[in-house]
Write a protein that binds this DNA or RNA. Structure first.
Lengths: 206, 206
DNA sequence: CAACAAACAGTCAAGCCTGACTTTTTCTTG
DNA sequence: CAAGAAAAAGTCAGGCTTGACTGTTTGTTG
């Protein structure tokens, strides 16, 4: 390849960092894909490097161990999660079925591959102390953020006793629906349940 | 050991079957324990045989492959599940806090090691077609049974529109709570949420 | 009581995964 | 433009898991 013009040293400094960033991104996305398709145990570092089109040496340069790779993938996933939710929240209709629409966004989110990858990590962390130490605080952070977003979207006053628990229940419900979805995909069932829950929420929260 | 009296051939026929049954039971329980402690990937057939005090040959005699062993463990687990729930349901108080008591039973059940083991299998089956084929129908059966039991315990009339969905939501909620419990054990949070849920249920279901 | 069958026990090679090591390419700096 | 440093690529040995193979004990049957 050409080395470019020597007169502008700043322009030559970019490519290196840019390539590094791109390589990391490719590795992390490949890791997430592997997690979704093959699960944590089925995700070998060799497989990730192959899929990302990155050499094994390069991979080990960025992420010395499998855990380091996966933990970094969690962070990456977190950002993806946040971006997805924020994007979906931005296009919400304001009308009589607002509550239902919010539940749909949440339900879809917890039924997406993103949730599957997170579930893999979550489950793996349950029996792996090192992973747990890295995942637990992150998940807590994400949980709080999701809670905050849900409160905002539903326009709930948390100072009213019981309202906070209702939001938590809603999130745990969609988490449970997401879990059920991983084995037997059943969007119709999910829809009916969320229909009913929207009714309840609107009656409980003035 | 003594061969016993020759006049009663039936008494001598028992020990063999009994030992076989006991050996299978030891293997299955050891498998479940391993699943809970180390997860699906961390459960090696060697480890199971060691923990069960069963030789490797004997193990392979009963269960030729790891999948066969784990699938059998699922069945075993299913019975354990059913027994636990039935037992807990038998000692329920009948009074004003009946709904809350039922939720407590369900919540506790989905926060127990039994759920952890089931979750391991569930998750592993997501990316393992052979395992999925064995687990899916079983889980469906258990799900229906749990639903039936919940309807019975809560004394719900499912012919009323919306009631069925409310029961399903309840089960998905406790599933979500169980999932959250696997990483950050938080019985207090769970209790508050179930308190609130009980309020909702009693108001929604006459 | 002796012979046969089934359950049980132990050993082992093939295959895979992880992470350390060595070489090559690419970018920066004087 | 040349030399040095950093990133990327490729190779490989050690450890672990699985399931096949062979030997031994226990229970049954004539």
């Amino acid at each position: 390849m050409l080395t470019g013009m020597a007169s502008s040293p700043a322009s030559a400094r970019v490519p290196q960092e840019e390539r590094t960033r791109a390589m990391r991104a490719r590795l992390l996305e490949a890791t997430v894909d592997c997690l979704v398709e093959r699960g944590f145990a089925g995700t070998s570092t060799t497989l990730v490097s192959e899929r990302a089109g990155v050499s094994r040496g390069a991979q080990l340069h960025h992420f010395p161990t499998k855990n380091a790779l996966v933990v970094a993938a969690v962070e990456h996933l977190t950002e993806k999660r946040g971006a997805e939710l924020a994007e979906a929240a931005a296009t919400l209709p304001i009308g009589p079925s607002h509550t239902r629409a919010v539940l749909q966004v949440l339900g879809d989110h917890f039924a997406s591959p993103v949730f599957a990858a997170a579930l893999e990590l979550w489950n793996a962390a349950r029996t792996d102390p090192a992973l747990l130490a890295a995942v637990a605080p992150l998940e807590q952070r994400v949980g709080r953020e999701t809670h905050r977003l849900t409160v905002e979207l539903l326009g709930i006053d948390e100072s009213v006793p019981g309202n906070r628990e209702l939001v938590q229940a809603t999130l745990d419900l969609v988490r449970g629906l997401g879990l059920a979805n991983t084995i037997g995909n059943d969007a119709r069932r999910r829809g009916r349940i969320l229909d009913r829950w929207a009714e309840v929420l609107e009656r409980e929260i003035p």
